[in-house]
Design a protein around this nucleic acid. Structure first.
Lengths: 350, 350
DNA sequence: CTGAAAGCGCTAACAC
DNA sequence: GTGTTAGCGCTTTCAG
């Protein structure tokens, strides 16, 4: 093994060398490596053995050059422009949600030997340059997480014929594939639960209304409550951060001091809401029941632990990865969407 | 622009075409593209214009093939083996810390146009296969986050001459570069603070003792307290998770009901400790002062917000990226380490 | 079923 | 300075 460490530059084994060792042509080795059907079993074994002994692994660059495929997909996070004064802003990356997506993606991409390449797009120029860059790098497909309401990336990518799948429905309608959760089913679960535990003065903290998730979780909850006979649901808009949840809760409490149940559009805000509630002397869930959304780490960490609507993020991410792979295989398929069912997770807060 | 969308397969512009348009040779175009010094300014402009009009972008695969460089670094997360029963285990990815590292890394890699490729290594076979894979994939360097105490990856990588930089000192000593925080300076800040606010019955919740960070934060704190005249510090070991913090706190409280100050080796555990403290009727910080470590999202989210030792994760990650770039440039440099100074962030808990 | 040969798009000697 | 010429390691017709 130490023979590797010689003075002359070490070079990885090539197809050619394997061919020489096996006593066949490069073409045959290539066929074996790529699992072509029509190869003599005897030669196949011979080649396999040669590959084994030489420790051969195909060179991706060379392969990409001819196949025009890299076996790499971009994992793009698209965010609003970054401002100079805040060098390291809180972004999706800071959200525990991001890690869950990564896990799901890696789980299907890893075994198939395709690598996710991380890219952050947080400026107009980066947005415009992305398509070109992807082309340059011969990236096969894109997994896009966009938290920028006016994002033009989804349409840019599809019109450039780059196989793309989004996590969440795009804010601006575009003919692009995506995975998402059935937000409205989730809000119904929340409403039902609140009613089931006899809450009658119910309010909600909504997410940003320029994001589809924010909208649907608000409208869906309102509709569900209407079906329970409560036509009007007091609501305040938050920005999906813990701090936003705190502020929203404070306002809501000032306007409706007697509320006894609240649905919060995500766990981070719910955690903030719980904290404010307690500071104002309300017991959770006794005085006020709280239900969040996502089932993120924040939900377990909260005191009391949050009853919440679980979004199967890892599964969604895995499906997203499967979808790009599929679109790379068959580029002419029309856009597809896969919607996951959320579920109620009962913990201490409601 | 719509001329692109023709029926025949569209092919990106090549160096050759640019050369033809500019009326020069491929070599000249290549020189211009790569900023070679010795090119006639007139031709240079001519070529630039041709590049402009053709929308040429170099093909990385082709370039890699000859330069033996990909402009890609692996961002490897190495974890203990994953068990079949838990398909999506809580991992570093779930930790908000991971996102901060990503931000820092992207911040230096992005502008220089080198891509981080995400890889997860969570099995013995993956560990063994990694080196070969990296070599043959022509990955230029590795950014390694290892949370596996017995990890052999650091030494494997360095002995394979793969430019590598770790986040945190390796658990097993190895001649490898890394960035880290001065844990002991941090623990001293914590001890000083606790003493400064007149705490006299001080304990600590330590991290896992098979991780250098866990050890140093324990020993460092003990030493600092010794310098303040307290020779023995009651301690319980936790596993760096919130749940671990809760359990450790409960034990500590049972054994030392009168403690009035505690240093916890990370924020997640500190958050758990605070929760338990309050459940046991202790006010924070009035009855018991709590200081965490990291200044992670958990610190701000906690009630009261955690006084903590800040670790400049984004800066550390950025430096790590710079270091790997540097080692790629000069492979023969001896291993280097850059240690960052932590700082005390005073919030509500101490 | 197998081998020979022609590139994929680019860089790097090496001549001019 | 600039062009010519070899490849980098692989896949893929096309003969045989």
């Amino acid at each position: 093994m130490d023979g590797d460490r010689v003075a002359t530059t070490w070079r990885p084994t090539t197809l050619d060398q394997v061919a020489r060792v096996a006593g066949v042509s490069r073409a045959t080795v290539s066929r074996v490596v790529n699992g072509a059907p029509n190869v003599d079993p005897g030669l196949r074994d011979l080649v396999r053995r040669a590959i084994e002994t030489t420790g051969y692994v195909p060179n991706r660059a060379a392969r990409s050059l001819v196949t025009r495929r890299t076996g790499a997909v971009a994992f793009v996070v698209s965010e609003p422009d970054r401002h100079a004064e805040d060098p390291f802003p809180a972004t999706v990356f800071g959200d525990p949600f991001f890690g869950r997506v990564v896990i799901g993606v890696l789980d299907v991409l890893g075994p198939r030997d395709v690598h996710p390449v991380l890219m952050l797009v947080d400026s107009a120029s980066a947005r415009d340059g992305l398509v070109n860059r992807l082309r340059q790098d011969r990236i096969d497909g894109v997994l896009l997480i966009s938290i920028y309401p006016d994002d033009t990336l989804p349409s840019q990518l599809t019109s450039a014929d780059v196989p793309t799948v989004l996590f969440s429905k795009p804010a601006r309608p575009a003919p692009v594939s995506y995975v998402d959760v059935a937000h409205r089913d989730g809000t119904k679960l929340a409403a039902d639960r609140l009613v089931a535990i006899s809450r009658t003065r119910i309010a909600t903290i909504a997410g940003p209304q320029d994001a589809p998730a924010g909208q649907e979780r608000l409208v869906g909850f309102q509709d569900a409550m209407a079906r329970h006979g409560q036509p009007f649901v007091p609501s305040v808009e938050g920005n999906f951060t813990q701090r936003g949840g705190e502020q929203a809760m404070a306002r809501l409490l000032a306007e409706h001091p007697d509320l006894d149940g609240i649905f919060v559009a995500n766990d981070l805000m719910a955690a903030g809401a719980v904290a404010v509630l307690r500071e104002h002397g309300r017991r959770v869930p006794d005085d006020v029941a709280v239900i969040g959304f996502d089932d993120s780490a924040a939900a377990r960490g909260c005191r009391p632990p949050l009853t919440t609507i679980r979004q199967p993020v890892e599964d969604m991410a895995a499906e997203m990865a499967r979808m790009v792979l599929d679109r790379i295989e068959r580029p002419d398929q029309p856009p597809a969407s896969v919607i996951f069912e959320p579920s109620l997770v009962v913990r201490g807060s409601a």
